[in-house]
């Protein structure tokens, strides 16, 4: 499998003087713990949007529930802070209603890989044109420190006082196998790198997932900044071929003294779901179309009854 179709240029709604990261900053200051990895994700997202020149009113950030899901409230864009685990269905509906919006989903590992994992699998196989940023801190933070689907085997948390006996999910191979067409991993400690991954995800026409190591400084004493700093290794420094499915999986499965970050897998030969529905071909977003039936449609529907 390799990339065969060139991506169309993204439609940029830039104002003449352009946007800066500040333009996407909301009026509320984040209530995350000092040092939380999510601050970094927030600012990289703001920078990525400004560098892409996307007008704030044409961007919607959709989150679930959890510390990281508070993110839309700290942005000056449209936002939806939905239910635990449900950001992807909500974002899918929103994108169908107005496919001209840039829709970015944000949330945590519990939200996306725990309660919401069923939706994730289907959003990936559908190749919805969404960018999903998972702030993965390997712990349930907002509920004060319980085991998460990505907590390492043996990790001691308030709900696993003797150490977790369950194998964690590795989101990278799961996403590659699940049908996501842009699969990346970033780290809060590598902001410039993360900005590029997020920009790439937003520009990608299909389902992009970016798993971001975003350390919880309060409840996760295992997976700390130093722990990640010692291990993360950038894929672009290794000449990784993002169109090689098997190599992408091999890199994705690596976990230990070396943990790869960067873009693992990307394919551009599959259209995004909304592009497959002829209903959206002409007439603009569904939300702006006239409602109801015209006389001919009415007549034909009545005829069916006779």
């Amino acid at each position: 499998m390799s990339s065969t179709i060139a991506e169309p240029p993204v439609k940029i709604e830039a104002r003449p003087e352009g946007f800066t990261a500040k333009d996407y900053k909301g009026k509320v200051h984040p209530d995350w713990c000092p040092g939380c990895g999510d601050f970094s994700v927030l600012s990289t997202l703001q920078t990525a949007l400004s560098e892409l020149g996307l007008a704030p009113h044409k961007v919607a950030i959709v989150s679930g529930i959890g510390c990281s899901s508070n993110l839309p409230g700290y942005m000056n864009t449209y936002g939806m802070h939905t239910l635990h685990g449900r950001s992807l269905p909500v974002a899918t509906g929103l994108k169908f209603a107005n496919h001209e919006l840039t829709v970015v989903c944000t949330g945590g590992d519990g939200d996306g890989y725990g309660i919401g994992v069923g939706h994730l699998i289907h959003a990936m196989r559908r190749n919805m044109d969404l960018t999903y940023i998972v702030m993965d801190n390997q712990i349930y933070g907002l509920t004060t420190g319980q085991v998460s689907p990505t907590s390492r085997l043996g990790m001691k948390t308030k709900s696993t006082p003797h150490g977790s006996v369950e194998n964690p999910i590795n989101p990278i191979p799961m996403a590659i196998n699940g049908g996501a067409t842009y699969v990346a991993r970033g780290f809060s400690g590598k902001q410039k790198h993360l900005i590029e991954l997020i920009k790439g995800g937003i520009l990608h026409k299909g389902f992009a997932i970016i798993d971001v190591f975003s350390p919880c400084v309060t409840y996760n004493k295992d997976n700390t900044y130093p722990w990640f700093n010692q291990r993360v290794k950038m894929l672009d420094e290794k000449n990784h071929d993002v169109t090689d499915f098997h190599k992408a999986l091999d890199e994705g499965y690596k976990w230990g003294e070396e943990i790869p970050i960067g873009l693992f897998w990307k394919r551009t030969d599959l259209p995004a779901l909304h592009a497959l529905e002829p209903i959206l071909d002409e007439g603009g977003p569904l939300a702006t179309r006239p409602l109801g039936l015209n006389a001919d449609q009415g007549k034909s529907l009545i005829k069916e009854l006779l």
Binding site: V62, M80, R86, G93, N98, H119, L286
Partner: peptide
């Protein structure tokens, strides 16, 4: 679960869902 949430997302986008 997805059905209801997707309808909410679409409705928030401005359509009748």
């Amino acid at each position: 679960i997805s059905v209801a949430n997707m309808a909410i997302g679409a409705a928030h986008g401005g359509v009748r869902a």
